[in-house]
Write a protein that binds this DNA or RNA. Sequence first.
DNA 1: GGAAGTTCTGCAACCGGTTGCACGAAACAT
DNA 2: ATGTTTCGTGCAACCGGTTGCAGAACTTCC
Lengths: 325, 325
Amino acid sequence: MAATIRDVAQASGVHVSTVSRTFSAPHLVNPETRNRVLAVAEDLGYRPNRAARALTTGRTHNLGLIVADISNPFFPPLIKAAQAHARLRDYHVFVADTDEDPQVEEELIQTLTKQVDGVLLCSPRLSNRAIEKLSEDVPFVVVNRRLKGMSTVLMDVGLGARLAIEHLTALGHRRIALLAGPAGSWTSREMSDAARAVAGIDLAILGPNSPTEHGGLAAAEAVLAADVTAVLAYNDLMAIGLVEGLDERGIEVPGRISVVGVDDIVSGRLTRPKLTTVAMPTEAAGRTAVDLLLQLVGAGQTATPALATLATHLIIRDSTGPVPP
Amino acid sequence: MAATIRDVAQASGVHVSTVSRTFSAPHLVNPETRNRVLAVAEDLGYRPNRAARALTTGRTHNLGLIVADISNPFFPPLIKAAQAHARLRDYHVFVADTDEDPQVEEELIQTLTKQVDGVLLCSPRLSNRAIEKLSEDVPFVVVNRRLKGMSTVLMDVGLGARLAIEHLTALGHRRIALLAGPAGSWTSREMSDAARAVAGIDLAILGPNSPTEHGGLAAAEAVLAADVTAVLAYNDLMAIGLVEGLDERGIEVPGRISVVGVDDIVSGRLTRPKLTTVAMPTEAAGRTAVDLLLQLVGAGQTATPALATLATHLIIRDSTGPVPP
DNA sequence: GGAAGTTCTGCAACCGGTTGCACGAAACAT
DNA sequence: ATGTTTCGTGCAACCGGTTGCAGAACTTCC
């Protein structure tokens, strides 16, 4: 089997504690000894066993990352960035998918708790109370949900919504629909609040809707009934679905109706017309979340929760145009 | 801190070993005692510490899942399925992204080795020799690469390529280009072998190319130079990029050139024209891989490597049409 | 030359579980 | 009544590291 610390100790004629220190506190051991130990360790292919180390130190050097749906194209860049960033700091990442089920989410967190130093919760579906309860056991960073007393990374989707609406009003649109997301989504509420705050427009809020292509497709009828010239959708998938639905009914985008999405997923750049959208700083969010979490982990219970708000920006492509005459 | 096995033992007036058995070998303990212990455990919120358990049993109940690029839309469904399937069997999954870098891949596997019972390697970029070497330390299942003596899940992309080519020939195409993927990709070689085996066509193999939208875009010129009427691309991303590149040059798809992709990613259903493509059984692959891996883990070194080949099928949409006159 | 530091290493307990072994009590057979 | 099983539980060693404490060897300073 794989070499243990005792094999190395024996082979290099020192006590196990010296070998241990060679790896976890090198400055405490004589350079000469250290080199000898390192040489032997290298020779035997020894690598410290993280699970064993975790047992005494209480630090697993693992993080948990929980998302509602890995297949939603919004998440992979975040996961990727978080994972890469964590790796640089010598942390591994468990990724778990809750399938949008709060029950699963809770179980997952509970079984993961003992194995990680902290958990990244992305767009959680759990209630605030449940999250607060669970956070007694393990540090959390929440992404895309405001939760007092907890470290949080927010993407300023309110800003994005305002930019989008302003872009539309600049094009002459006055009657605008907001295609809302799932009920209870923080993001969705944030968007409608921001949109309502823009003066001089006539806003129709439609929803809640499923945050998928299909949800957008299904909403086409409601959009037409609302008699608007422009739509801001909860996310790109819905926007794409909506364009499809409008197309089926012979409504041109952006000729008759302009459409704006949110997320800037890859697909949005590939559809015709190319989607005007609010770009989310997902990679930055992943990295920031890991930073905040490690900060929390390092600080122990004395931690002050931090709040990071990341700016969003509007990407103007081909799905928006001047209001028809 | 969280309750340990000793807390439970004390509170229920039995020895720690009895508590341990209550969880890991219930049949060995008197039902009455067991219930008492369980009640106390429940009361104290006790959950067994997996890391500690791993130390003695040698089973971590964790799996590693290594992919080249989480952001490539081909992977998330596989990750999702694998992760969900593993969870049902009480396994957690580390997901790591190598950024297509063999070096990173190797390091990742090495640091993960001690923490997992087995590793799922998806479309590895490492050399066969390196993989064989690493497999001495931990069981592997390789997805999308044939490796003798190792458990393997293959998606029959050769079949897919043949179906695609036959579809094209049925439409009258004779001069067909194959847009290859990265050098050293098993999938890519498999596709060209299968394509070459189809009689009666004039096949141009173009590549290697980067397996991204940009790679497809960049290949547009080469495709035109090859003077073909149809193209089979290594994957959907490239196919979409290619359609884009052709469009920029005023070449209609499928009017002048037909294009077929591989993977059936969501984006392919959203582009205009909708992409004809070879659908890959990614979810099934994820589940099968987990099954094979756990089988291997259970069997110890006596394991016989297994090979699972999953069928692919062709989805005909709008990017292919009859050969132009 | 002796006291007071430094620096390095060893000892042993500990982290939170698991498990082979032994032993006492109850159940069964003779 | 005695001998043999079976069952349930306790004991203690062990998994592979970490770490507080103690002491040996070597400096440094008066």
